[in-house]
Structure formats: C-alpha cells, structure tokens
Amino acid sequence: MTGKRALMLAGVLLAAMVLVSLFIPSQWEGVDVSVVQTRAQQMGGTVANPLINVTGDLQLFMFTIAGAIGGFIVGYSWRSLFGTPAQEQREGQKKASDRKEA
C-alpha cells in the first residue's frame, strides 16, 4: 500500500467518523473523563484539579504563542525536513558534475 493511498484512506475514515458523530447525540466526552475519571471514582479513587489550570483566553494565548514559535522553527528547518525543490536538486547535481568534469 502506498503512503499516499494509506494517508488518503486515513483522511476519509477520520472525516467519516467526525461527520457521523456530528449527527448523533453525543458530547464528544473524552475517555479520559468518561472512563478514566469515572472508573477511578467507582473504584474509590479521587480526581484532583490540575496543578496549572489554564482556562479561557490564557489557553488561546498559549496555543497561539506555541503555534507561532513552532511555525518559525519548522519554517527555519523547512528544507532539511521537506527537501529542496526538484529543480534546485537537478541544478545542484549539474553543477557538481560540471565541477567534476572541470
């Protein structure tokens, strides 16, 4: 199975899961709450508040800053991550072979 085909299938499956979920009455409650926390309480455990409870616009602020920093880092490393355009690669190879011949 090619990478492109597998990623497309994953995308289609994800879209189908989200679409179907939009039409059924559910709150998208995560298993962290619906199973982990509920089960822990059933078993006699307690759930404490998070150490740092980031809520409201502070969460938006942090995500925006983190996204910006992450974006700059990916942009800075773009070519080592995703390669150079094919044309530049060909030109580089041509220059290298020219130098060899010279």
Binding site: G3, R5, L7, L9, A10, L13, G83
Partner: peptide
C-alpha cells in the same frame, strides 16, 4: 467501543507516514 475505529485510523496513519517518507524522501 471508543478504540474500534481509532486503532484502524492509527494503523493507516502509521503505514501512510512510513511509506510516504520512504517514497518521497
């Protein structure tokens, strides 16, 4: 019940990303 489709998704993602890197880079 929450994992039935999720594991299929993660399986496809693993195949896709691995083969995508291998084919493209």
């Amino acid at each position: 019940p929450s994992l039935v489709l999720l594991i299929v998704l993660d399986g496809l993602f693993t195949v896709g990303l691995f083969n995508f890197i291998r084919e493209r880079r």
